[in-house]
């Protein structure tokens, strides 16, 4: 059964130095507040997993919390580069970053294989592409029935997966809506999981029998953090701050401005500070 905890407790209990950590959310519902708590608690040597590293992993890489990263698209969507990620790969600042690079299709399949408790995933992928030449974790397998050669990648099995969702009930059952990405697979593939939510309600009332629900017995910790996905968004609660994504380009381009931003907005901030992003939008709506 999931325990309903504070963010500090949930991260302290479930994220350890050296862990393989997946923070998922495909543009939508990215667990920013939880990621910031990981930075505040000074976790180090993490191996980060995420399809689209986005600004959150730019921040974790920039503060030196990561020893490596497995990913499939490392940019600021629609804006350009992740400058902290580039600085780590191109100049080893603030520390070298080991990378394991895949395609989206392979990552999605690898999460699904993890959720299905399989050792690897296969796909008709990487044909004619160079990634298999530089990533030894991309191999091939021959279909025993047809002889077709398919790509194979190891299942993703994080020590801990962290996601953000719209709401949970008091028992810790979680509901996700909108662009649901790979969050269900990422939680089910992991040993432990933390879900931050916009609201904790008495009755979950899933809108459809086919809604995406993670039952309390499949989740480790649930944390109430309204606004916790900002500057990404929570469908039905507040929109994506495209303006912040654009502004991040300048903030992250320079090491000094990045460090100053982290101090002011992460190290000297609290999870409750995220609530204003949710509240402001609710007022506007």
């Amino acid at each position: 059964m999931a325990r309903i905890l504070s963010l500090a407790e949930a991260v302290a209990e479930n994220v350890k130095d050296g862990d393989t950590v997946a923070m998922e959310g495909f543009t939508h519902l990215i667990p920013y507040a939880a990621g910031h708590e990981v930075i505040r608690q000074g976790r180090k040597d993490l191996f980060l997993v995420r399809m689209t590293p986005d600004i959150l992993y730019d921040q974790l890489i920039g503060v030196g919390a990561a020893r490596g990263m497995k990913f499939s698209w490392g940019g600021n969507p629609g804006v350009g580069s992740l400058h902290r990620f580039r600085d780590a790969v191109e100049n080893q600042w603030p520390r070298p970053l080991e990378i394991e690079e895949h395609s989206h299709a392979a990552m999605a399949n690898a999460y699904e294989a993890g959720a299905a408790n399989l050792p690897f995933a296969m796909l008709r992928g990487y044909i004619g592409a160079d990634l298999p030449k530089v990533n030894p974790n991309i191999k091939s397998i021959t279909c025993p029935f047809t002889g077709e050669v398919l790509a194979a990648v190891p299942a993703i099995r994080p020590d801990v997966t962290i996601i953000h969702a719209q709401r949970a009930d008091r028992k810790g059952n979680v509901l996700l809506e909108g662009i649901v990405g790979v969050q269900k697979e990422a939680v089910l593939a992991a040993r432990r999981s933390i879900v931050t939510v916009e609201e904790i309600v008495d009755e979950l009332n899933p809108p459809s029998p086919n809604s995406v629900v993670l039952p309390t017995w499949a989740v480790t910790a649930v944390v109430h953090v309204p606004g916790g996905a900002f500057p990404s968004y929570a469908h039905g609660y507040y929109p994506r701050s495209n303006a912040f994504y654009i502004a991040w380009d300048e903030i992250a381009r320079d090491r000094e401005t990045f460090n100053a931003w982290i101090k002011e907005n992460v190290l000297d901030a609290k999870p409750e500070d995220f609530a204003r992003h949710a509240a402001k939008s609710a007022k506007a709506a």
Binding site: T52, F71, S72, W73, G74, G75, S81, L82, F85, R86, V89, E90, E101, S103, H104, A105, L123, R124, G125, Y126, I127, G128, A129, D130, L131, V134
Partner: peptide, 21 residues
């Protein structure tokens, strides 16, 4: 070079399989 890139671009995302499928 991949191991010591002059410019690290975002990567492939969906493109490798979009291009083939």
């Amino acid at each position: 070079p991949y191991d010591h890139p002059k410019v690290r671009l975002p990567g492939g995302g969906g493109a490798p399989e979009i291009a083939s499928n």
